[in-house]
Nucleic acid binder design. Structure first.
Length: 573
RNA sequence: UGAGGAGUGGUGAAACGGCAUCACGCCUGGCUCUGGACCAGGUUUUCCAGGUUCGAAUCCUGGCUCCUCAGCCA
């Protein structure tokens, strides 16, 4: 059972809680919010969600679930220049696909513009905000530096009346972009740079994807976010570490405007994954420069990419549960993700036979024209599931090129000249002769004999030390294209490679290997896009949602099987 | 050289003054009609230096290293 349904980390469950849940539990027990727990996932609709967001989604929705609370989906859409409805749609799809439900709690910061404006007016009336007319460059200079205090703007002392008038005219569209901004009156000498009179509003004569041309005055994140949380009665506002310094503004605003039962912000470390990048900017660059096929390229760490790759929501949630939540910056190794995906797929994906790089085998003592339809179970005995299909056997079959070696090492358990191996769910065959390309001398086919008495019988003697290989009847095989995906980058941390190099310099050239001419068993002919299988001894595969259709099958490798032998070979060579 | 955070095996986490634990990885062996899964065993850890204490990953002092902040992005 995936972690989602049976997450043991519930309050009072005895299991250790992460520090966020520890806080929520404390607040729930103390009755701080009357026992209410309200979280929110607040994406900006300006890009696609990625695995890092999945961590946050699992946290926010998971905390709400664990403590009998609710989680809102709120779009933080306060920047008209980058946001778009198409992103809103993709984000909603991705959150749903991950298995979370915000029910009727779908919110948009852009719906709060009028209320937000009212809060700004209140701050001005209270003498806690002012209209600044310095230009961008001047504001930067007045702000000072990390070791130098800032200076107060000459406009800081404007009267409440003048500020009110100016602010109203900013809203009315009387000024061009950048002419004025609204700032909080905090402390220009604050050692926390974020508190040097943070900007609250800026003028943008731009069309907002939801509000159209109604506004030309837009709130900044630091203003809109805490107030949106408060408007929605959020209790625990969970965000990533880079907002730690912003918490001072969060608290300043809410202490001034929502003194009781106000939300509090807590920060956790965002996810970093080896061999990929996680920043929206870099992901966008990969898409725009055509270095990947799109946001849903199966190599992308986006939710859309992982979905197309064939990853399961349960597997991703399991991964999120396993990596935990903490405040220490970290970088998670790919194995953790892949193992979680395998874990889920193991009990989910029926076993079928596919030969990626075929080697022809003629069974010389098998009658010409004879076909046997053999029963092949979909599941190994350790999976508690039944069901099977029929696979045809005939005189000519194909096996994997990598399952035959002329001069194998001592621990080889596959086919060799004079050796035996079982065709999975069928008979033992013995390699009697190697057919060679007269020009190159390469093995191009094998002539084998089969043991008609070995069907369904346990292996004995030397046969016990061999394995059972996948195979497909040549006459019945279905052609397929198989896409073998691998890590997108060839270095663990492409973002900090430095030395004038771009992260794109570290793309893994072998991250998408297309193998055509694969032969799969006939039962796969009708597989529908999105169907997942384990190709025996290869890995987990999914019929590609974009390109696969009956008659032109395309399979994506979701993740390969662990392979101790491959590792072992790598070491002894 | 300001402020705010963070340092526990190879990786991610747990232990909340009392035997450093779990998952992943790696290594052995077993089992297997998948060199998968599963089972058994093993490997490796508290940033440094002092201090308090019967006892410190945990408390105190001082260092070191890393991350974040000087967008009218979020």
């Amino acid at each position: 059972m995936p972690a989602f349904e049976s997450d043991p980390r519930v309050p009072g469950g005895g299991e250790p809680l992460d520090f966020i849940r520890e806080i929520v539990k404390r607040d729930k027990l103390s009755g701080l919010y009357g026992g209410r727990v309200v979280t929110r996932f607040p994406p900006e609709p300006n890009g696609y969600l990625h695995i890092g967001h999945a961590k946050s989604i699992c946290l926010n929705f998971g905390v709400a679930r664990d403590f009998g609370g609710v989680c809102h989906l709120r779009f933080d859409d306060t920047n008209p220049e980058t946001e778009d409805m198409k992103y809103v749609e993709s984000i909603m799809r991705d959150v749903r696909w991950l298995g979370f439900d915000w029910q009727d709690r779908l919110f948009f910061a852009s719906d709060y513009f009028e209320q937000l404006y009212g809060f700004a007016v209140r701050l001005i009336r209270d003498g806690k905000a002012y209209v600044d007319s310095l230009n961008e460059e001047e504001i930067r200079r007045y702000r000072g530096g990390v070791t130098e205090p800032g200076r107060e703007s000459p406009y800081r002392g404007r009267s409440v009346e003048e500020n009110l008038d100016l602010f109203a005219r900013m809203r009315a569209g009387e000024f061009p972009d950048g002419a004025h901004v609204l700032r909080a009156k905090c402390d220009m000498a604050a050692s926390n740079m974020k508190m040097r009179d943070p900007l609250l509003y800026r003028i943008r004569h731009a069309t907002h994807y939801r509000r159209g041309g109604k506004w030309c005055l837009y709130p900044m994140y630091d203003f809109a976010h805490p107030l949106s949380d408060a408007i929605e009665n959020v209790t625990h506002s969970i965000c990533t570490l880079e907002f730690e310094n912003n918490r001072a503004i969060y608290d300043w605003l809410l202490d001034n405007l929502f003194p009781s039962q106000r939300p509090h912000q807590y920060e956790f470390a965002r996810l970093n994954l080896d061999y990929t990048v996680m920043s929206k900017r870099k992901l966008l660059a990969l898409v725009e420069e055509g270095l990947v096929s799109g946001w849903d390229d199966p190599r992308m760490p986006t939710i859309a990419g992982m979905r197309r790759r064939g990853y399961t929501p349960e597997g991703i949630r399991l991964f999120a549960a396993r990596i935990g939540v903490d405040k220490a910056n970290s970088r998670v190794s790919m194995e953790l993700l892949e193992n979680a995906i395998r874990d889920d797929l193991n009990a989910l994906a029926p076993r079928v036979m596919a030969v990626l790089r075929p080697l022809k085998v003629t069974i010389t003592n098998y009658p010409e024209g004879k076909v046997e339809w053999l029963d092949a179970p979909y599941w190994p005995r350790d999976i508690d599931k039944g069901g099977s299909r029929k696979v045809p056997l005939s005189r000519e079959v194909v096996i994997e090129q990598t399952d035959f070696l002329e001069n194998p090492p001592a621990d080889w358990i596959r086919l060799r000249p004079g050796g035996e191996v079982r065709l999975r769910s069928a008979y033992f065959i013995r390699c009697e002769e190697v057919e060679r390309d007269p020009a190159t001398g390469d093995a191009v086919g094998l002539r084998c004999t089969y043991d008609p008495d070995s069907l369904g019988k346990p292996a004995k003697g030397a046969r016990k030390k061999t394995t059972a290989v996948q195979w497909v009847s040549a006459a019945h095989a279905v052609k397929a294209e198989v896409r073998l995906y691998d890590r997108l980058f060839s270095v663990a941390d492409p973002e900090s490679a430095g030395d004038g190099k771009s992260f794109t310099d570290f793309l893994n050239p072998g991250s998408a290997e297309i193998v055509r001419g694969c032969l799969v068993e006939p039962s796969l002919a009708g597989s529908s896009p999105g169907e997942r299988f384990q190709f025996l001894r290869h890995g987990y595969f999914v019929a590609d949602e974009g390109d696969s259709r009956p008659g032109a099958l395309v399979f994506n490798r979701i993740v390969d099987l662990k392979d101790r032998y491959r590792k072992h070979l790598g070491k002894t060579d």
